[in-house]
Amino acid sequence: MEIHIQIIGSILILLALVHIIFPKYFNWKLELINLSLINRQMMTTHTFFIALTVFLMGLLCISQSHSLTSTDLGKTICLGLGIFWLVRLFFQLFIYSAKLWKGKTFETIIHIFFTLFWTYMSVVFMSVYYA
């Protein structure tokens, strides 16, 4: 199970780094211009802290995979991470509109990839807890 935790950690670090391109890719300079200053700053600040949190989750998974899978505290942390990513999977499937990806090749691939990734993480983390 440790190898799965390390794989997840590596992908989470990559995901965190991808956040760097979000402002340009999503054209935030133009898209956010009509928002109030507080909403613009909340968008960029929250994106930064999401990326930081995802990066730190990845670092934890890579550097402490043994502890996460073999100690009571580690298993409890895995339960929390499993619940976190299960809720994220729920949002992927039921909160985000299918209009965002249906009929768009790149967006559909991304949607499928992240649906599989959120599922994989949820199953791995929950399996560690219940093993």
Rank of each mutant, 00 (worst) to 15 (best):
G9H: 02
G9F: 05
L14G: 10
L15W: 01
L17V: 10
L17F: 05
H19F: 12
I21N: 04
K24R: 10
K24D: 10
F26D: 12
F26E: 02
N27C: 10
W28E: 12
L30D: 13
L32F: 09
I33F: 13
N34V: 00
S36E: 13
S36Y: 03
I38Y: 13
N39T: 08
M42Y: 12
T44Q: 12
F48W: 10
F49M: 11
L52W: 03
V54R: 00
L56P: 00
L59N: 04
S63G: 09
Q64G: 10
S65H: 12
H66N: 12
S67T: 15
S70Q: 13
S70W: 01
T71L: 11
D72Y: 13
G74T: 05
G74E: 07
K75C: 11
C78Q: 10
L79Q: 06
G82C: 08
I83F: 07
F84W: 13
L86H: 04
R88W: 02
R88N: 04
F91G: 06
F91K: 15
L93H: 01
Y96K: 01
A98L: 03
W101L: 04
G103W: 03
T108D: 02
I110G: 00
I112A: 00
I112L: 14
F113A: 01
T115F: 03
T115C: 07
W118G: 03
V123C: 11
F125W: 04
Y130S: 13
Y130K: 04
